[in-house]
């Protein structure tokens, strides 16, 4: 019960854990809120699921067609590329599930002033923006990705050891964090520049580059995909590791580091940006 004396919040690590636990619980509340809305518009959900699945299959068929013309891609066989492609669908799907609000952040929250409401709630503003809505249809991207990987490993004769499954989860999560962080960083631009279009669309297209072996690109592009917008790094090196290919340098261990660095930058920029939020005139 709020009283007139300041509420004593635990500080330091204890406070952080406390806040973490609260937000973790709230995640399910937010999600069930979203689910209720979707359930009440079931027809809409199924149509949207069907179209997004069709889009995934359409994009995937490009790889299949490509390999009917060429036997290999920079030394990579069809199954291997399919594995990589499948793995890259996992962070892509994770990103899509929570990206809906990020993608329209500048318009919806900054220009329309919806961010006012977010700042009035006693929980993290970033949490609210990410989890106020979802695009749960994008689970089909994750599922398709897993299916591609499973199919590829069967034809390559690779076994799924528990260690590999753990690796898949770990790298999938890291890659997801990298994807989300990159778009978060782009979204924070809206705090300073209130332009409606935003910078997301061109970067969104870069995601497709991460689905193919980095070795098919020139050095400049490789550098860009590893260290500037690391979609390539996030999916290529973990796949190489899981496929057991020998390639140097092996950057897989750097993936979690890059994930942490990008997430830290994103959160810092976000917190800094909220101080620049100027709301609207009305």
């Amino acid at each position: 019960m709020p009283t007139l004396t300041p509420i004593s919040e635990k500080s330091g690590i204890a406070g952080l854990l406390d806040a973490g636990e609260r937000h973790f619980g709230l995640f399910f509340d937010y999600f069930s809120q979203y689910a209720k809305v979707r359930v009440s518009y079931r027809g809409d959900f199924f149509i949207s699921l069907a179209t997004s699945f069709a889009a995934t299959i359409f994009a995937l068929s490009f790889v299949v067609v490509l390999f009917q013309k060429v036997p290999q891609l920079a030394g990579w066989r069809f199954e291997e590329v399919l594995f990589l492609y499948g793995f890259s669908l996992i962070p892509y799907g994770i990103f899509n599930i929570v990206s809906l609000n990020l993608y329209d952040f500048g318009n919806n929250y900054i220009i329309e002033g919806k961010f006012d409401r977010v700042l009035l709630r006693p929980i993290s503003s970033l949490f609210q923006v990410l989890f106020e809505t979802f695009r749960i249809e994008s689970l089909q991207e994750v599922a398709t990705g897993v299916f591609c990987m499973w199919w590829a490993t069967r034809h390559l004769g690779l076994a799924w050891t528990p260690a590999k499954v753990a690796m898949l989860f770990f790298f999938g999560l890291c890659a997801g964090i990298i994807y989300i962080s990159v778009f978060l960083i782009l979204s924070t631009v809206s705090f300073w520049f209130e332009d409606r279009i935003g910078v997301h669309p061109p970067v969104w297209n870069v995601m497709a580059f991460g689905r193919y072996p980095l070795s098919i690109y020139s050095g400049m592009v490789q550098f860009f995909l590893c260290w500037i917008i690391p979609f390539g790094l996030a999916s290529f090196y973990p796949s190489v590791r899981m496929l057991g290919r020998t390639i140097s340098p092996q950057y897989a261990p750097l993936v979690p580091v890059v994930a942490v660095v990008f997430l830290t930058i994103a959160i810092s920029l976000w917190n800094f940006g909220t101080r620049h939020y100027s709301s609207t005139g009305t």
């Binding site: 300041p6 509420i7 002033g113 993290s124």
Partner: peptide, 14 residues
């Protein structure tokens, strides 16, 4: 975050 727990806000416009 702590502060907004102690206030209530209504914007008539929104």
């Amino acid at each position: 975050r702590q502060y907004v727990k102690t206030i209530g806000v209504v914007f008539g416009q929104r």
